[in-house]
Design a protein around this nucleic acid. Structure first.
Lengths: 159, 159
DNA sequence: CCAAAATGCATTGTGCGCAATATAATAGTG
DNA sequence: CACTATTATATTGCGCACAATGCATTTTGG
């Protein structure tokens, strides 16, 4: 009835080992990625989530898509509790405008200012600069991205 | 010299497209993963970062490793600004103790309480339950985890 | 032994994320 | 038209993350 010397809690210890957790790999990699972006985005006066919002706005404007808070939320999977103050800060920085829709007074329409539109040109080399820093082969990064997107859709829309 | 009609900003628009960003795939997948864990960890009275801390503590105790705040920080890549209040909450929940080291008065030693140790048994099925929910093949999840770990080490230790 | 540098942790402030709740506007029902 | 339900956003509160700063305690170099 004596316990094995190296694994006092039994063989199943590996199940809870930190290095075996996909969740921790995801958590740590995401924060490391954010840290790499931070200095580049600081040059643009943006935080990382603010940058993601700007990506959506640039893309939507190019597509002629009108953007509401809820539409942004669906795209980024964020709710109003996150987006409302973030958008207020972007508006304070004169990058976007927030305006109640005329058709539906509940809807707040987000639009780029001239300055917000202009930031796109300066942002264009950010992804490239960053992926170079990562030092992983582009096709491998792309494969990883697709695996993550698959995992995401499995986790969100029924697993 | 006229611009193509569909992409007013030029062909390079795809560089900034949200769906092409590894960083967003990482960001979204991490939050989705956290959301899956949340209800399971709520049964244990833990948040997600608290759960990661407990994983480290369970692992360290099994290995006879004494744990300081800085050691925890190295393992999880978190600093004292995050860990100090988190550990205070774990101590308030009677899962850990925080005690100044005798040998070096600067060091705070973190130890499991009986209750904190006991939580390990209840946590044991959490990773399995979760990976089942993800609905992805185990070997594929494992490969993804290893890719993320590779990316992490490239991003942190010189890319 | 003493001054300076380094170390370990705590504190403060800002900005997310997210749950819960509130508020206002619209849509649907009889 | 009143009444209810739904929708869209805002607000509040809590818990991270992280930069910056502060402070006490070693450690180091002379």
């Amino acid at each position: 009835m004596s316990e094995p010397p190296v694994t006092p809690e039994g063989v199943e210890n590996t199940v809870l080992a930190l290095d075996n957790q996909l969740c921790f790999a995801l958590y740590a990699a995401n924060r490391a990625m954010t840290s790499l972006y931070r200095p580049l985005l600081a040059e643009l006066g943006l935080t990382y989530p603010q940058y993601l919002v700007m990506l959506v706005l640039w893309e939507a404007e190019a597509a002629g898509q009108e953007v509401s808070v809820s539409w942004l939320g669906q795209r980024l999977r964020l709710d109003s509790g996150t987006l409302t103050p973030l958008l207020k800060r972007l508006a304070a920085a004169d990058l976007v405008t927030r305006q109640r829709s005329g058709a539906d007074e509940r809807v707040v329409t987000i639009a780029l200012t001239t300055q917000g539109r202009g930031l796109k040109a300066r942002a264009k080399d950010v992804p490239v600069r960053l992926l170079c820093q990562s030092g992983m082969a582009p096709e491998r990064l792309q494969a990883l991205r697709e695996e993550l997107k698959t995992l995401l859709s499995l986790m969100t829309h029924g697993g």
